[in-house]
Amino acid sequence: MVTVVIAAHGELAEALVHTASMIFGNMEDVASVTFKPGEGVENLLNKYSVIIPDTQKDVLFLVDLLGGSPYNAASRFVADKKNMDIVSGVNLPMLVEVLGKRLGGSDLKAMVQTAKKAGVDGIQAFHEWFDEQQMVNSTRAEEGDELG
């Protein structure tokens, strides 16, 4: 199973993991890393090393800001490792769908693609989206025995 590490500024990572447990209960191989005022990239690298003692394991980092310290530290950590990757812009839609796909047996490569897509697809403007959907829905008949 691919280990998922959420790393973000402040307490965001812990809160995201805690919130995801509403949907997944207690999760194995999921870790959160906080980045607090006064800390630097070296502190984060230490934290990553403690969480991931076995660097042969597949690991997906989900970090908050592209170019932020959690991202920069993770970049150094994974740069020479093909079994690890990073996706930035972590949000709840991304995390929830990645964990779901992991349950379904996805590997690292598939989880990276899921993360990128779910993180973006989870952002919609209601009227723009709904107005389009309603036209599709209203054409669906209640009769017959075909799905839809």
Binding site: G100, A118, D121, Q124, Q133, Q134, N137, D145, L147
Partner: peptide, 24 residues
């Protein structure tokens, strides 16, 4: 229409989802 649309919005990409009456 609103509830149906919102329900269909939940299911992620490759999972197909449908909201139908019990009879259908």
């Amino acid at each position: 229409d609103l509830r149906k649309t919102l329900l269909l919005q939940v299911a992620p990409g490759r999972t197909k989802s449908y909201v139908m009456s019990v009879d259908k």
